[in-house]
Amino acid sequence: MSQAWSAPLAAVGRTALSTLAGFGRFGEFGASVARSFRDTSTWLRLVALQMARLGVESLPIALFIAAFTGIVLALQASYTFTGAVPLYFVGTLVGKTMILELGPVLTGLALAGRVGANIAAELGTMKVTEQVDALETLAYDPVAYLVVPRLIAGVVMFPVVVAFADAVGIVSGWITAINMLDMSTAEFVRGLRLFFLPFDVHYSLIKAASFGLAVTAMGCYFGFTTAGGAEAVGRSTTRAVVVSSMLILVLDAFWAATLL
């Protein structure tokens, strides 16, 4: 009987230990990032490049998603409201939903795939091909050179991308409403302004910044802790995407519980 229990218990113990070790490693990584922030001469000139790569180059996919989300929101709102609720509430639902939830979350999830995977694969490859060691031997702090600019770019650029996504989602919802729902622009705008609060935009951008930090931090962490060969790079990339997607959903709930 005791033998029957020992194997699963040992597996649980191993998993618990490995999880704790993972937290420990992440703590160490966080401490090295905090220390490397002081090395401004290394990271400052690289931030603009990363902002372009992480933010500007992510705009097409984010806006594509937002445009179709706006269309669907308008059509589903009209379908739900038929007869019972005035149609101008379509504007309310499109605006509120895009700004508070779908703009930041869908953009965050899309960028977890695009940006998080890209960072983890790039840094993971650099790690296994000794490029990170090469930076060390050339007297560069690899965390200041590779991680800090990406984290800053993520925190700064995710809100910018989400702001554009919110706007495009609302505009596509409006175009759908006036062309397919027999609504006027005045009606749509009336609904849009009905429950609008400037705080909604702040809320959307705060969420986006936290998602940017989560995605870039996970990409950098899993990339930096890659050990082995091509298979290990693939594993790190998958983990970065999965964990950052989960973190986005957890952060989404956290901000809803604390800010709303």
Partner: peptide
């Protein structure tokens, strides 16, 4: 480095 470790 053994495999050069050039920055790609």
């Amino acid at each position: 480095f053994q495999f050069a470790a050039l920055f790609d």
